[in-house]
Design a protein around this nucleic acid. Structure first.
Lengths: 232, 232
DNA sequence: AAGTGGTCTAGACCACGTC
DNA sequence: ACGTGGTCTAGACCACTTT
């Protein structure tokens, strides 16, 4: 009777993953409960719990009280994307970061913008800027800032620091939405990015909130060829 | 002396998040250690640990042994994207799912494909298919399957089940890469999706592995207007 | 060397959902 | 009603990293 040493939760997790991949536990199968596994592995139930909870978070297991733990029938892959500052993104690749403010104005937003931010039609701060990598256009930032939520933004010129960066340091948010899509470059975007009109560009739209108050809405238009990568 | 009830890790987490948002703990600040917080909150250290670990995973705290726990200077937002089956994606929106196999052949892959899959130049299974939502083109799937890793794929016709779905049920993978980008629709893609040539389309490229063996490489080209959304 | 987070244990009670 | 996962506790030891 060998009692292999499953002494920590990572080891237990590896064994669980192995059994799933090896089809010892098939999709849809009910696996033994925590107490039984703890006994089998010779560790505490809390250790098994930690391992199974982690695997469940990755989508490979479905856990329900009383019903037990099952191998997911159709594992939903979860890709985690780190949304970092554009400056960091560029510097992380060893390139030189550049920033140019294109325009800064107080203006009444189009209905689509004020609707998304759920604010009464009022003047808001509108920024347009260009991010560069090694002096080449990298992305256009088009941002609306809710000055009711972030009044201090009014006294910032944004000519050396991007809205991206200033807000992160000065305007906390509790939650937000993000959307990825493809679009055809507008005339203005094509001019700034130095690409053909209607070129296919990668777009990120983000909307952030501080509790019930909207903070900012930003659209990032990346130069053609940009990819967002991650692992599964 | 009030002893507010921070009796579970979620409550502790909320209080920690409140202090960060309220700038009681500012970016860069060292916060009290687990033992002190446990005493302050009147709970066990393990409970504080669970709360802080969870917050750290979201990117708002940096934790290092001996150095302690600090509020992140530049919180990296982490967006988690669920990569589900296209069929589920469509059905979840209450639309009717449709599938059409366009082509299935054994052929020698272009160098780019065989290079990505790290296989010797050999015949591989190539599938092209169309996914439909309410009878309208939704996405084109272009897939290469490594028949050395998944020989059973050779006996599947794929005329009623997509490669997407069949592989999930029949070919486990341990890890993979995924990339999002924008591209101009090729002639073939435009024809299948019913969109203009060179229209801006959203593209997902995925490459999966079972340990050291490549399983499949797939490119999904979505009809114009497609968005991938999630929350922050 | 010492302080901090990381984890394990054994036992307990609770919450939820199925039966 | 009862079985399962979810969590808390108190104490212990360990691993890492900084001093």
């Amino acid at each position: 009777m060998n009692r292999p040493a499953f002494r920590n939760w990572q080891t237990v997790q590896e064994e669980v993953l192995r059994r799933i991949h090896a089809r010892e536990w098939k999709p849809g199968d009910l696996i033994p409960n925590e107490a039984d596994l703890a006994e089998e592995f010779g560790c505490a139930r809390a250790t098994v719990n930690r391992a199974l909870r982690t695997v469940a978070e990755s989508g490979l297991l479905d856990r329900r009280r009383k019903a037990g733990t099952r191998v997911a029938l159709q594992p939903v892959a979860k890709a985690t994307i780190d949304i970092s500052l554009i400056r960091q993104e560029i510097e992380a690749r060893g390139q030189k970061y550049g920033y140019q403010l294109i325009s800064r104005s107080l203006q009444e937003p189009p209905a689509q913008i004020s609707g998304a931010l759920q604010v009464p039609t009022t003047r808001m701060l509108h920024l347009s800027a260009l991010h560069l990598a090694n002096d080449a256009p990298y992305a256009v930032e088009d941002r609306w800032i809710n000055t009711a939520t972030v009044p201090t933004a009014l006294s910032e010129t944004f000519d050396t620091i991007s809205g991206n960066e200033w807000l992160l340091a000065n305007a906390p948010y509790t939650h937000g939405e993000i959307a990825f899509s493809a679009a055809a470059a507008t005339k203005e975007e094509a001019r700034l990015l130095g690409c053909p009109l209607h070129a296919a560009v990668f777009v990120i739209d983000r909307l952030t909130w501080d509790h019930a108050a909207s903070v900012t809405k930003v659209r990032l238009i990346f130069a053609p060829g940009h990819q967002l990568r991650t692992t599964l």
